[in-house]
Each structure stands twice: as C-alpha cells, then as structure tokens.
Nucleic acid binder design. Structure first.
Length: 287
DNA sequence: CCGTTAACCTGAGAGC
DNA sequence: TGCTCTCAGGTTAACG
C-alpha cells in the first residue's frame, strides 16, 4: 500500500490519538508477517508511555519513555485502525476493498490503550513490526536508506553523483530505496510523466536538466500528495478510516488510454511492465 | 560489484 | 454460478 505520503498521513493521524498514551497490552494474533514478529514484543512495551511518533521514508516509528522503538512497515496492504475498546473481535467495517467488513482474520496485532485500541490489519502480510532496544540499533537498521524527498540531502548534486554509474533504467533506479527512499510505483510513474522522461532511459545517460527536474517535481508531487491525504487505490485509509484524495489527480498511474496531461502534449498514456511492475507513460512526450 | 527475476500472500475482478 | 487467471501503494534472496 503505502509510499511516503501515505505513511506520513498514518503518522499524523496516529500522533493525534496515541502520543503520550500508555500501552496497556499488545496482542499478537498472527506472528507470520513479512518477518516473524518478535514473541517478546508484548513484554517489551507493556506499560510504556509513547513519547514520539515519527516517520522515516516508508517506516512508521513509535518511541517509548525508555528510549526503545517499535518500527512498523505496511508492505502492500497493511493498515492501522483505531477502534473502541473491546470491539477488537468484531469486524471493524474498514475493509481491504470497498467498504465491506474487514475480515477479522487479518487483524494480526492489537495494541490496547486505556480508552481504545489500535489494530494492525494486513491481508497480504507483507508488512512487519520490529522492536529496537535503542536508537543505535534502529539507526543501524535504517542506515541503508538513501535520502528522502523534501530533505536537503536529496538534491541535484547528490542525484548526479548517485546516478553517474547506474546502467539500469531510471524507473527502477528511483524505486531503489538506497538511492532515494520513500518513493514507490505510483509516485515514480507520476514523477517521470511530469518530467517527460522515458521510464526505460538508462539512468546515467540523463541530462543535468532532467536530474534537476526529477528533484524539483519529486518534491512537488510528494508534498502535494501529503496535502491531499495520500492516495487511496484499494484500501489505504488513515487510522480513523479517512481515505486519501491524491488518486483523483493522477496523471499517469491508472490512466492508460487517457490523454497526456502535460501542457500542449497530444500523446496518450500507455501501460506496460518494467521488472513486473506496471508502468504508465506517454508515448509522445516521454519517448 | 551489477541488474533482473522469483518469491512471499490474499482478494477482487475479468473472462469464459 | 463458479472456475481459472491476472493483477495489486513492497522488499529481498538468489541468480547470471
């Protein structure tokens, strides 16, 4: 599911409800996520107050009063839901698709607070929870990530240096979290379309003006996506069930057959596959 | 070192 | 109605 903007929206909504709250209990109903959930997760965080909620690229991080951390990744279909106390066993009416009842069997982790609970639901189980004893261990886990959009480190000079030997195509390169962290398939498609760059173009062959455009429009699109509550394709929602709106302004993703939205471009958006990921591009201005 | 591919999962929708 | 097939906001081990 979520790329940087969606995780940011979850972070913002979670912060409003659980910052400075104390965890009463964590229930793990199914440990078999992308990585097996640490069986001690309950002991580690019981009775601890949350002192900070933040995000690093696509990771959500919860910090506790003893300076330990809980890292959450949502994979493709993970969501958090705030529910009233003691209704964890009922369907939460926030489903994977549409608004049918969400199958209770995908409620894998339940974090209980005094007045409500937060449920982690993930039908495909590509997400994961990892506890960290301290900041050193957490930073070690995150150190492989490249800079995020909207930070000073993500700039033209950095990108030029990073791409100068990249023989792969620009689309896969931008999806590589070691180069830039936080982008996923939707936003890379959107960025390359507005920059008028062929997704299959070899990364190191891009002109300087193209790299400058990538930096500029990556920041613009990510900022706009956050301001629009993220993108809801199938099941993304914040913890209160609110969907995003950015999908309404997609220019490439899911737009095959539609006219290219670039100014004065007469082209049409086509769909193909690059490394098994759907890729949307204009056959006129992106070639 | 590099880039590509397959694998991990479930569910919705299309086609027959 | 029901079966089979494809595809989905991600990551990464294994391979050439």
């Amino acid at each position: 599911m979520p790329e940087l903007p969606e995780v940011e929206i979850v972070k913002q909504s979670l912060e409003k409800s659980v910052l400075f709250q104390t965890i009463q209990e964590i229930q793990v109903r199914n440990r078999n996520l992308r990585f097996k959930v640490d069986i001690n997760i309950k002991k580690k965080f019981n009775g601890l107050k949350i002192t900070k909620i933040f995000r690093v690229s696509k990771y959500l991080l919860i910090k506790f009063q003893n300076n330990s951390f809980l890292l959450v990744h949502f994979g493709m279909s993970g969501t958090l839901h705030q529910v009233k106390k003691n209704i964890e066993k009922k369907n939460t009416n926030l489903s994977f698709y549409n608004n049918r009842d969400l199958p209770i069997r995908h409620n894998h982790i339940i974090i209980k607070f005094k007045k409500f609970s937060i449920i982690y639901n993930d039908p495909r189980r590509f997400g994961f929870f990892i506890p960290f004893e301290d900041e050193v261990n957490l930073k070690s886990f995150l150190k492989k990530l490249g800079p995020e959009p909207l930070t000073k480190k993500f700039n033209f000079v950095y990108l030029k240096k990073k791409l100068e030997n990249k023989t792969g195509n620009i689309k896969n390169t931008l999806l590589d979290q070691k180069i830039v962290s936080g982008l996923g398939n939707i936003y890379v498609n959107e960025i390359l379309n507005i920059c008028k760059i062929d997704p299959l173009k070899t990364a190191k062959l891009l002109k300087e003006k193209d790299l400058k455009k990538i930096v500029k429009f990556t920041n613009i699109i990510i900022k706009k996506a956050i301001n629009n509550g993220g993108s809801t394709i199938k099941n993304f929602k914040n913890i209160l069930g609110k969907e995003g709106n950015f999908q309404d302004t997609f220019r490439a993703y899911n737009n095959d057959g539609n006219k290219c939205k670039n100014l004065n471009c007469k082209g049409v958006i086509k769909k193909n596959f690059i490394s098994n990921r759907s890729t949307y591009f204009c056959t006129y201005c992106q070639m």
